[in-house]
Design a protein around this nucleic acid. Structure first.
Lengths: 349, 349
DNA sequence: CATGAACGAGTGAGCGCTAACATCCAGGGG
DNA sequence: CCCCTGGATGTTAGCGCTCACTCGTTCATG
């Protein structure tokens, strides 16, 4: 900073006092205009606005944050992935937040472990973020969250549905039920499941929903194929499934797994949906163009994002923390990958 | 703010002066320790660090920004999409920036028009962002960029390769050449192209590279199928292509288009790569699990992101603006969707 | 033993804004 | 005709930090 030479300030951005001088008012009146304070005469308001326009003045957010102790900043902690769900969520959240005048700062973590999450949250607290969203799809992430001081609103997305804390998530169980029910209704004796990573809540929820539906229907619960979320692991699981003639219906934990399964079936000469029916989860934009078009479960990420923002905003404006819990119910999108079981492969009833 | 009651300050976050008091030094010494200034005695440094630890002190970024006039904030303007390329880029950039101690603030725009981009950039300038990245894949976005005042480093990603301004992008032409060449080398008389949206630089570059390669090889340049980036439009284009027996090789402007084409071919009973060979662009994670596995061009988004950050950092540390231009060359990933043309469908040579 | 770098540390001002309080002025009731 | 009320505006202090400068020691040098 140069405090000796006034000419050094010549090229700096105009500040509130500059506007005030030009408009012939005090800087405080400028502040009042900017913050839409009621007690300003219309004529004064106009003069100030004109001066702002003329100078190209832009308020300095850092100064405002310093003075108020509050920022207009929302922090997001996300993992470093391009998985469809998290990406969509993030984009939707950023858009929604921008519409409400908030800045969104994203911190990616390479792995979803306790210390990474904690560090990322700490980073946002250092920025004096007004609220923090953590995409916490695994137990470790969620545990880290439990330790965060409560002086700033925090909401988990895709977090542990059991934990009593602000949370917005998709009703994985309901989605899985929809999928499983749909396959059962098509006449299949039972439904096989290729699951996502065991430590993901999403995967666990889908597994649970599938299993419960089967049990309720009195259907046999076949062993579960473990996979990560990738098409590669779906393919591997699909290869196993393809050589078992009793497999006529598969519920994949997401669309990419389903894609891998579809390819495995195709390679092994088992037709979908002729021999095997497949249902996915996520409704990625390409799902309608898989071979065959994939029947899948669609979670509404826009709603998840909007609700997460709403929970945060409620927390910011001083409402009781811990109260915000929203669970979004997904819907089934029927396409061409489901059909009746082949003759002899269906259930008796 | 409460200036009357000192007890009102009891619960506020500890500030530098609190640390200073506890360590028995001045606030300035604390500042020196924090900023790793050399002229601090080791013993003093330790005492300060201990005090920081004890109080759980975290520096207030807003105050620092206000005092220095510089933030550690990097702004990103991106469109509201979950397209694979932009998403990957964004994630990679966020990770790289975090590693260098920067905060990344993302502003999504619904449409890539001039005023939206300008507003988003302005928003970041209001935050006193130290640098701004604009993912500007269309002409309109790029034009908006040209109007941005130059008092803050701005780098375009995926922008107009012709414009003389800081830019990091993938060498689309080179990638398209790789793809086209590969198909020609497999023996195809010519290669058909399904292009992305005409106003995208990426699409234009891929088109150019394809056309040039064909011309250089003395091959006929067939009419171009126009599409957006979606599997849906790839499917529509594929349907057309499938009914033309002379089509034996297709270069799709991205993998999702290729997916749509694959399905169209499959539906129409044309085998890939038996009857028709297909090459995509992007190497989405699922490409290896398409039916058949897709040969495609892989741009290295990590490198693009890292380079973009480097250009910004150079600009921030006061180097000549306008100098940063990096063009990343993609590579070809060979899989199973390319083969020789069917008998009678290849070129004479 | 005088001299002055070089180092370690402190002081004071100011970054641009908002909150609280102070002030001014017009108009209505006693 | 004075006082009170309340709207419009100004004044002041301070948010937490960094910068430029100052001050006091130490220690090598002649």
């Amino acid at each position: 900073m140069d405090h000796t030479s006034p000419s050094a300030r010549v090229n700096r951005d105009p500040a509130m006092t500059d506007v005030a001088r030009l408009a012939g008012v005090s800087h405080q009146t400028v502040s009042r205009v900017l913050n839409e304070h009621p007690n300003v005469r219309e004529q004064t308001r106009l003069r100030v606005r004109a001066a702002i326009e003329q100078l190209g003045y832009r308020p300095n957010r850092a100064a405002r944050t310093l003075a108020t102790g509050k920022s207009q900043l929302l922090g997001v902690v996300a993992q470093n992935s391009t998985l469809y769900g998290p990406s969509s969520l993030l984009a939707a959240f950023e858009l929604a937040a921008a519409a409400r005048g908030f800045v969104v700062s994203v911190r990616r973590v390479r792995v979803l472990d306790r210390s990474s999450i904690a560090a990322a949250v700490e980073h946002h607290r250092e920025q004096r973020a007004a609220g923090i969203v953590v995409i916490a799809p695994t137990g470790a992430a969620d545990e880290a969250l439990a330790e965060v001081p409560t002086d700033v609103p925090v909401v988990a997305v895709d977090g542990d549905p059991e934990r009593d804390a602000p949370l917005v998530t998709v009703d994985q169980e309901a989605g899985a039920r929809l999928a499983t029910r749909h396959l059962l209704d098509a006449g299949h004796a039972t439904v096989w499941h290729v699951s996502g990573p065991a430590d993901w809540f999403d995967a666990a929820g889908r597994l649970r929903g599938w299993q419960q539906t089967l049990e309720e229907a009195g259907a046999e619960v076949p062993p579960v194929g473990q996979a990560d979320w990738s098409a590669a692991s779906g393919y591997r699981a699909g290869l196993m499934l393809a050589r078992m003639p009793e497999v006529t219906a598969v519920f994949a934990a997401n669309d990419h797994l389903a894609l891998g399964i579809l390819r495995a079936m195709s390679e092994r000469g088992r037709s979908v949906p002729g021999d095997v029916s497949v249902v996915g989860f996520d409704d990625v934009p390409e799902a309608a163009y898989f071979i065959p078009p994939l029947t899948t479960v669609r979670p509404d990420f826009d709603t998840v994002a909007t609700e997460a923002l709403a929970v945060l905003l409620a927390g910011i404006s001083g409402e009781e923390p811990g109260s915000g819990r929203r669970v979004i119910t997904p819907t089934l999108v029927e396409r061409a990958s489901v059909g009746p079981p082949p003759i002899g492969g269906g259930r008796s009833g």
